[in-house]
Design a protein around this nucleic acid. Sequence first.
DNA 1: GAGTGGTCTAGACCACGAT
DNA 2: TCGTGGTCTAGACCACTCG
Lengths: 261, 261
Amino acid sequence: MAQDSEHTTTVDRTSGALYRQVASDLREAITSGSFGESGRLPAEGALAEQYGVSRGTIRQALALLRADGLVTSRRGTRRVVLGGARVQSFSELLSFTHWARSMGEEPGGRLESLVRRPADAAEREQLRLAPGSDVYVALRLRTLSGNPVMVERIVYPPRVGELVAQLPPDVVSHTEFLREHGILFTDADHTIDVVAANADDARLLGCRRGSPLLRERRRTTDPTGTPVEWSQDRYLPGTVAFSVHNSLAASALSRHAREGD
Amino acid sequence: MAQDSEHTTTVDRTSGALYRQVASDLREAITSGSFGESGRLPAEGALAEQYGVSRGTIRQALALLRADGLVTSRRGTRRVVLGGARVQSFSELLSFTHWARSMGEEPGGRLESLVRRPADAAEREQLRLAPGSDVYVALRLRTLSGNPVMVERIVYPPRVGELVAQLPPDVVSHTEFLREHGILFTDADHTIDVVAANADDARLLGCRRGSPLLRERRRTTDPTGTPVEWSQDRYLPGTVAFSVHNSLAASALSRHAREGD
DNA sequence: GAGTGGTCTAGACCACGAT
DNA sequence: TCGTGGTCTAGACCACTCG
């Protein structure tokens, strides 16, 4: 946090919205342990004056920190820093490659198969395709520093699949390649449960058939709401866990009885 | 959605914030299939006029729907209804009892043990307790319509544990009981992974030792940021799954390499 | 170029928590 | 009672999408 002699705080004006810059600055101040032992933040009005912005902008910034579980907020009292802060960008969440690199691991992958075939009923529904549409189905083994970690099955609509089929073999990151070609990922729905390894899983991951895997199913859409992929990732136990923060204000996680696949 | 002859929409003024009422009304309009095939919502300005509120209030309402993954939003175009809508309240998420009832199942539980003992290092850190503090540890079997579904181990700080120890045996919902006694749950961090059943798990759930369970670890805090419980729930596979929605705008889910327990 | 959502401001009043 | 965050308003300008 940059302080000048007037006790106002300046933020880098060259990138993005003001409230994001303020949020970023506050995030740093929080994680670097400012705000002392009590962890009480200044009042919104004080922050507004300090940053030279309106209270509304400060509130937008604080809403971001709130969503990340960094601070509390309730009427009547100052905001308080929460422990257990966790930070991860959207792209790290969706892209195995980004995620691995952010941990300092070397991501790898091997495309086992990529086929074009008619979509079945479930695929048509998930990807909102018309009857008779084709899909591309990719099966990939993912590795961290050479060790098998995850098997991913991704179903693409034709528009996206055609790009994936042209994907050069040396490109590691699916996601980035697609983004560069105009396929945008903006929203994702995830479902997490446990499943038994099938023959393919066992062969690729080097585990026994029937042994448990952590499964993440994900449907990703672009800004218009059009599905761009439907994926099913199966992780070896002990390699990965998923974390969620939620609060009374905004809850994104849900628990539900398991239905059919 | 209630319409009068002036084409304005009225909402119930008797409960809660205006923007929540608008959000609730829009949520209903969306799920009941208004907005036609295209799924395009009216412009913010039009909604503001329709509801007789300012655009800011409409934006607050839409932010809620956005967080739930019900609608998209981007500059330049109307908002669009997303498929795959999922709704669950915070209390349903934290309380096994509420969750079960919302599905039409009959929740049950059996307290296996409740002990007070000195906290170990991990417990002190999770609950932010001073050295030498005690904790209460509850072990419970949870059932749906009589069938074992989940084993929960909850560690409480003394203040909360003393209440739990007084909990009448006929009270089904932990969470509600605590809320009525002034213990508020407002923020929660969840971690989801797979673990092998130990001897206790196997005995209570009726599965084999070493068989896989879906584990949810959760730390819940009150509005001041003080931890009020640290729980570890283990579900039989096939009984439950966890869902998360996230978007470029606000992401609460994270994936991380598994660390020590 | 017209329409849209994104951002920002300045001010107001209220509900709640602490003292 | 006083300070706090929660809510709401009215208006402004901008960045982006689309025909």
